[in-house]
Write a protein that binds this DNA or RNA. Structure first.
Lengths: 254, 254
DNA sequence: CCTTGACATTAACGTAACGTAAAGGTGTAG
DNA sequence: CTACACCTTTACGTTACGTTAATGTCAAGG
């Protein structure tokens, strides 16, 4: 009733290497080692291995399994509940990306060769989603629930021409802003032109416009490191400069 | 409009290390490197990174992503379809183990402290499932569809006393078989006692008995390396010996 | 007695996609 | 002139083993 590594491995449907590894990390030590240095496993070890493989099958990592099978005081139930929670999160995530992949496939099959722009939009969408995960509550509180939703819908439904216009506007904003920052005056004519172009761009992106939202979003450009990086790459301080220009443009500052 | 690693990383919501890694593996090279050896990225690289992150989000590995974004002739559609197939398989697997975890949790919550025996049963179940994956068609062809199902049900529904009896019988079979093998005679009295005990054990496990199935299963003990390992651990050649003994027992051999 | 073959052992690198120091160069603002 | 904030490369750690490589042990057969 003693098993060598190979025998136990075959019995359990795993590899001898796995058993040596489990010995190495202290997860399952052999009952004894004979004179030749060979590992020998007995009844107890077989049972323990069965437990180990059971939990392994459930997707728990070896660290947690070790605590479960070696420490009788360990709260298995809690560990399982946490594990279940992780698994459900994983499942939701999987379902999301499955939907996206299906959408992507349909788009390509539809002959309309998902354009880079659409990929870009999808990515932006994802960025917004990420952003929401981080700043979600703030943003939704500040700009309102459906503002965010509308923005996403608008973005996705944008036509090719709209998108071209949108991209050109973006470039114009950048160029004008780059010049304006040099003047150092947020109330000056080039700064105000940049603010006006930004309003156009915003309207194009959101499908509507309000001075409050405009003032709000440029503040976010300063607060959110990602947007800050984007604008500050044009020229250091550009994000803050644009905010000041827009505050003047919307009449919130002298 | 040029980004350093940090700026681009912030823009994309990833780490500078990731960008250096992508450079290292040739996935995304910077537009140029300045005199100080600093990486600088331009418009093109930003766009490409967006594509990369889009596909990364879908769960594709960097290898495939590299082929998608660098080789315009690459069949993206096919890659996505294969990916979708993998994802669906993953999802099914996830759902299975979620169900098992939930069952395990309920069992523990029910106060009935899922006994080692139940774990053992669950594991056996899993073993049978694995076995079926490998030898499924053969087994089902040989022993019939519902025989397999009934076996599983029977196994799971076994009471604690049944289980004790089952385990004792298992031990008796082993002991008797160990003695019998020494005699070398499959038709001898101890070999026939082993065969009879094995019949008891089998009846207990399956909830029914037939000589054909009995003869069939001992043949499987010889053919399937896992069962072979289990019986041969008692004594080398025990699997084949048991088969011969059962063939005599069931009247299939002299 | 020696070989063969089938087992066993340890050591050590490889995997994917980065995180995380460590050690050092560069550039600019005070 | 010195902080400080960047940048660089090198290299080890992560998970759960797979895969050689080099070597040791044991029973059977010539």
């Amino acid at each position: 009733m003693e098993y060598t590594v190979k025998a136990l491995a075959r019995l359990a449907g795993i590899s001898p290497r796995t058993l040596r590894y489990y010995d190495e990390i202290g997860l399952l030590r052999p009952a004894r080692v004979n004179a030749a240095g060979h590992r020998l496993y007995g009844r107890e070890e077989v049972d323990k291995l069965q437990q180990i493989l059971f939990y392994r099958e459930l997707g728990l990592n070896l660290d947690r399994i070790a605590r479960i099978v070696n420490d009788p005081a360990f709260d298995v139930l809690q560990a399982l509940r946490k594990h279940l929670h992780d698994l459900l999160a994983k499942k939701r995530h999987l379902e999301k990306i499955i939907a996206t992949v299906e959408k992507t496939i349909r788009a390509q099959e539809g002959g309309l060769e998902m354009s880079d722009e659409e990929k870009f939009a999808a990515f932006k969408d994802k960025l917004l989603a990420e952003n929401e995960a981080k700043y979600g509550r703030e943003i939704r509180e500040k700009y309102g629930e459906e503002a965010v939703e509308r923005s996403n819908r608008q973005f996705r439904n944008m036509s090719q021409e709209d998108y071209e216009r949108f991209k050109n506007l973006e470039q114009e904003v950048k160029n004008t802003l780059a010049e304006a920052v040099k003047t150092g005056d947020p109330a000056g004519p080039s700064a105000q032109k940049a603010a006006a172009l930004h309003k156009e761009w915003l309207t194009c992106a959101w499908g509507h416009y309000s001075p409050e939202a405009h003032a709000g979003i440029v503040q976010m450009y300063v607060d959110d490191p990602r947007f800050a990086a984007y604008y500050d790459a044009i020229r250091p301080g550009a994000a803050a400069f644009l905010r000041d220009a827009v505050l003047v443009f919307t009449g919130r500052k002298q």
